[in-house]
Design a binder for these strands. Structure first.
Lengths: 204, 204
DNA sequence: AACCTAACTTAACGCTGTTAAGTAACGGAG
DNA sequence: CTCCGTTACTTAACAGCGTTAAGTTAGGTT
């Protein structure tokens, strides 16, 4: 049973080589640079070789995203132990913004692009892998502490309102930061402004 | 001086024919259907003819967007006469969301896609053509009525915080409405929830 | 030793945006 | 009226894209 396992391992290895090459192009030169041919160049294979490991380009990008979405969620574990749920929410918000600014390409693909068919490999509802579930547990805690306004009795609604607001800051920054049309205040001020608004708006 | 004017007029006419064909494809079948060849088919010209009227595809799309951005801004004039600035802001927020849901393709191109080089043809700062300027005048009015919280003394900051929040609802809906990952509350509830949050969060 | 299959490569298809080169029509000048 | 140059196009082509069909090669199984 030796060779079979080795082959499996090798197959997995080249899979991750493809994934890594794609990610490298992705973060350093943007989505548009992720072409099958350029990935193939990087790993010194022919373009068609990739299709033996991924059904098509979308599947590759989806898996790349999935993989990074998990690490994105795990990021939040560092604030999970903040006792005060309101402070925990504030910290999570700052972390969220920080992630978006540090990984704009990933952020765009994850949250600003339609047609994501929804991941299979992530354990939905598990706050350690699913960032939305993590947000919901925070909001639930806020509610348990009697600090959620009655208007947002529904935790899903509150979570979605909070997420919308914070997503708005990040996505507007990513899409429009180079637009001289608007005289942008520094992103840090905008982020803090939105977080303050969230606290005053949905909590008591 | 007759023929010269006629030629100018004809030139303008085919320009708008191209623009219209592009828009039609754009709203009915999405961005990805706007190819130079398909536009050309619609107006029964060769693909290269378009390049005589527009530098390249991006320029065409930019002009299309510019044109529609103006009508987007003019939309808001219907709420301009609401006396109470807070109610005016709420109404503008609802109109904004409505526009995004009704014209998702335009919304994506205008506010969710990087690389917009900034329009030349729009009268920046004029609230009737520039929606951001319109928002600022509302916020300025809110302030003049003593209803803006001190934390947002800077009108630009307040406007950007408000815009971020409302943009967040729309863009999340456009990008992720088909994602079964999250159990979405109805968009109307989310929108109203965000508008409420804005009122409680940045006003007093 | 023969064979089979997994893992590739080469060549090609149809699509994209864009450009170079050619053509036909028209307005003005000699 | 003729010549000429500009304007407004067309046809053909290029380079690049995702993807597939067909061919090749190496390694494990029988």
């Amino acid at each position: 049973m030796g060779p079979k396992e080795r082959r499996e391992r090798e197959r997995e290895e080249i899979r991750t080589r493809i994934l890594d090459a794609a990610r490298e192009l992705f973060v350093s030169e943007g989505v548009e640079s992720v072409t099958m041919r350029r990935i193939a160049d990087r790993i010194e294979y022919s373009p068609t070789a990739i299709y033996f490991h991924f059904r098509d380009k979308d599947a590759l990008l989806a898996e790349l995203c999935d993989c990074d979405f998990r690490t994105f969620s795990q990021n939040f574990q560092t604030v999970a132990q903040i006792a005060d749920p309101v402070e925990r929410l504030r910290a999570a918000g700052r972390l969220y913004v920080e992630f978006g600014l540090k990984h704009p390409s990933h952020y765009r693909l994850m949250f600003m692009t339609p047609k994501n068919p929804g991941s299979k490999t992530i354990d939905k509802g598990n706050p350690e892998e699913d960032a939305y579930a993590f947000l919901k547990t925070i909001i639930g805690d806020v509610k348990a502490h009697g600090r959620l306004r009655d208007e947002y009795a529904n935790v899903d609604l509150a979570a979605q309102v909070v997420w919308s607001a914070i997503h708005g800051v990040v996505s507007l920054e990513i899409a429009k930061c180079n637009d001289e049309w608007v005289e942008w205040k520094p992103i840090a001020e905008r982020a803090e402004g939105v977080i303050d608004m969230i606290e005053r708006g949905v909590m008591q």
